[in-house]
Amino acid sequence: MSQKQNSLQRMTSKAIGKYFLDINMFNIPFSLVIGLTLGVFWSIITFSTFGILIGYLGFYFFKENEYYSYYNLGFTKSILIKKIWLLNISISFVVFLIYIIIR
């Protein structure tokens, strides 16, 4: 892999990592509340579905202008949301497997 590609990949990882944390900063507490009221299964489902919408709205209301950081790095909102959705689906799948095993 060339140095340029490597650099681009690290930039992508850092940017997506930050957006992942920012979105899930709102998503995780919401998913935990769902977990406490409806159970672990629904908490896991929420984390990769409706919780992302809550995270998106939280980011929109409190940090909207930070989107311009991502725009300047070449990421549109739809690219960001798709990546976060894929990451959260993967995490939910792993957590769900662990939940099934220890249950």
């Binding site: 690290r10 940090k63 202008n65 989107y67 950081s69 300047n72």
Partner: peptide
């Protein structure tokens, strides 16, 4: 095209030295 909006686009809670690597990993 890069764009400078009227309001700041940088995360206010982060230190300058932590923000720069977000844009420039190299």
């Amino acid at each position: 095209i890069a764009y400078l909006p009227q309001d700041t686009f940088l995360p206010k809670e982060k230190r300058v030295r932590a923000v720069i690597p977000l844009f420039f990993p190299n």
